[in-house]
Simulated scan of single mutants.
Amino acid sequence: MESRGLEVCRYLMFVVNLIIFACGIGLLAVGVWVYVGGESFRQLISSDPAIFSSVAIIIAVGCVLIVAGFFGCAGAIRESKCMLGTFFAIMLLLFLVEVVVVILIFVYYPRAKKLAITSIESYNTTTKAPWDAIQSTLKCCGYTNVSDWGSNIPPSCCGNTTLCNSKSPTLYNTGCEAVVRSYFWTIGGVGIGVLVFEILSMIFSCCIISGINKYDIA
Results as ranks from 00 to 15, higher is better:
Glu2Trp: 01
Arg4Asp: 04
Gly5Asp: 13
Leu6Met: 13
Cys9Glu: 06
Arg10Asn: 08
Tyr11Asn: 03
Tyr11Met: 02
Met13Tyr: 02
Val16Asp: 04
Ile20Ser: 12
Ala22Lys: 01
Cys23Met: 14
Leu27Pro: 02
Val30Ser: 12
Val32Trp: 14
Trp33Gly: 11
Tyr35His: 13
Val36Lys: 13
Phe41Met: 12
Phe41Ile: 14
Leu44Gly: 07
Ile45Leu: 04
Ile45Lys: 01
Ser46Asp: 10
Asp48Met: 07
Ser53Asp: 06
Ser53Trp: 12
Ser54Asp: 09
Val55Leu: 12
Val64Trp: 12
Leu65Ser: 07
Phe70Ala: 05
Cys73Asp: 00
Ala76Asp: 01
Ile77His: 03
Ile77Val: 14
Arg78Thr: 05
Ser80Phe: 09
Lys81Phe: 00
Gly85Gln: 03
Ile90Gln: 07
Leu92Gly: 15
Leu94Tyr: 05
Phe95Glu: 09
Phe95Tyr: 14
Leu96Val: 15
Leu96Lys: 02
Val97Leu: 15
Glu98Tyr: 07
Val99Ile: 15
Val100Ile: 15
Val101Phe: 02
Val101Asn: 11
Val102Asn: 08
Ile103Met: 11
Leu104Trp: 04
Phe106Asp: 01
Phe106Trp: 12
Phe106Gly: 02
Tyr108Asp: 11
Pro110Glu: 08
Ala112Trp: 08
Ala112Asn: 07
Leu115Arg: 11
Leu115Gly: 11
Ala116Gln: 02
Ile117Ala: 13
Ser119Ala: 15
Ile120Gly: 03
Tyr123Val: 03
Asn124Ser: 14
Thr127Trp: 04
Thr127His: 13
Thr127Gln: 13
Lys128Val: 02
Ala129Asp: 02
Ala129Glu: 04
Trp131Asn: 08
Trp131Asp: 10
Ala133Arg: 06
Ser136Met: 07
Ser136Thr: 15
Thr137Lys: 14
Thr137Asp: 11
Leu138Phe: 15
Lys139Leu: 04
Cys140Phe: 13
Cys140Ser: 08
Cys140Ala: 08
Cys141Tyr: 10
Gly142Ala: 07
Ser147His: 12
Ser147Leu: 05
Asp148His: 07
Trp149Thr: 02
Trp149His: 09
Asn152Trp: 05
Ile153Arg: 05
Ile153Ala: 10
Pro154Phe: 10
Pro154Lys: 05
Ser156Met: 03
Ser156Gly: 03
Cys157Leu: 02
Cys157Phe: 09
Gly159His: 09
Asn160His: 08
Lys167Val: 06
Ser168Asp: 12
Leu171Met: 09
Tyr172Cys: 00
Tyr172Gly: 00
Asn173Thr: 09
Asn173Ala: 03
Asn173Cys: 00
Gly175Asn: 06
Glu177Asn: 11
Glu177Ser: 13
Glu177Tyr: 13
Glu177Gln: 14
Glu177Val: 01
Val179Met: 10
Ser182His: 07
Tyr183Pro: 00
Phe184Tyr: 13
Phe184Gly: 13
Val190Asn: 01
Gly191Trp: 11
Ile192Asp: 04
Ile192Glu: 02
Val194Met: 11
Leu195Pro: 06
Leu195Val: 11
Leu195His: 09
Val196Tyr: 06
Phe197Trp: 04
Phe197Tyr: 12
Leu200Asp: 03
Ser201His: 09
Met202Leu: 12
Ile203Thr: 13
Cys206Arg: 06
Cys207Pro: 01
Cys207Arg: 11
Lys214Ser: 14
Ala218Lys: 15
